[in-house]
């Protein structure tokens, strides 16, 4: 159980929640296998305590910090966000966490920090998917944001879901949630946060650059080369009325974030 978190109403949607069972039983977390039910089945022994996070690069206070120290004095909030997967399904999830901006400010980014790079735990002993020889992803999983995206109030570091601590399959003990981007940007089980001047490499972009860009903003107008992004199926979908809904630009968060990309050609910077 987490400390009682107050709901950030202004930043939350009031859409119907995807049930806990599905939020925690239908996951893409390839470190634990390719099936949607693999993470729940195979992640339960992930050791998340103790957990430390390395903060490095262009910050005045680099170092390796214990998670409990990172969370000291942090006010947890509940945020109900839409999550749009690049595979064209979506959920509505009540996360518990705090703005990434708060954390970054504490470590005092230098003026030349333009990007934030994140790394997931690399531990093939605990993560069977990292032992597979037939995968296409180079481990560890890495992701990144531009500094202004990272500092945006919507950008969340989550430690819980549905009022409880994150289960391992959802990226325990600390994960990113960037609701206006495809789900794969929201990196799980973070062990390193690195501030840098250069645009950092990101896992899916390295795997298939023509399919996954650095920005990966939800955009119904730009299709994935192999499937359409103009609609999504809101889960759980029932068989005879598949919950097909239109996908919104920036996953419906355009009012808050569109200005971050003004002047950019979103077809080029997909």
């Amino acid at each position: 159980k987490l400390r009682a978190a107050t709901r950030a109403d202004g930043l939350s949607t009031d859409e119907k929640l995807t049930p806990y069972e599905h939020v925690t039983g239908y996951n893409n977390f390839y470190e634990f296998g390719l099936g949607k039910d693999d993470p729940r089945a195979r992640a339960q022994n992930l050791k998340t305590d103790p957990w430390s996070v390395e903060i490095s690069g262009e910050v005045h206070k680099p170092g390796t910090y214990q998670l409990e120290d990172i969370l000291k004095g942090v006010d947890l909030e509940e945020r109900i966000y839409r999550l749009r997967c690049v595979e064209a399904w979506s959920m509505v999830i009540p996360w518990v966490g705090f703005p990434l901006a708060e954390l970054l400010k504490r470590f005092e980014p230098k003026g030349n920090a333009r990007y934030v790079a994140f790394t997931t735990l690399h531990d093939p002993e605990q993560m069977p998917g990292q032992r597979s020889r037939f995968g296409t992803i180079d481990w560890p999983y890495v992701e990144g944001l531009r500094m202004d995206e990272a500092m945006h109030p919507l950008t969340l570091l989550a430690v819980g879901v549905y009022g409880d601590a994150l289960p391992p399959q959802n990226g325990a003990p600390l994960r990113l949630v960037v609701p206006w981007k495809y789900g794969f940007k929201s990196i799980k089980s973070i062990v390193r946060i690195h501030l840098t001047e250069q645009m950092p490499p990101t896992s899916w972009n390295r795997t298939a650059p023509q399919e996954y860009g650095f920005y990966a903003n939800v955009n119904p107008a730009v299709d994935h080369p192999r499937w359409s992004q103009s609609t999504e199926r809101r889960l759980p979908s029932s068989l005879f009325s598949p919950n097909i809904i239109d996908t919104q630009p920036f996953n419906g968060y355009g009012e808050q974030v569109a200005q971050l990309y003004s002047g950019m050609d979103l077809r080029k910077w997909y």
Partner: peptide, 15 residues
């Protein structure tokens, strides 16, 4: 499995 609703969040995809 479908009738028993044991196909998870996205039964369509599983089927």
């Amino acid at each position: 499995e479908a009738v028993q609703q044991r196909l998870g969040a996205d039964p369509a995809q599983v089927i």
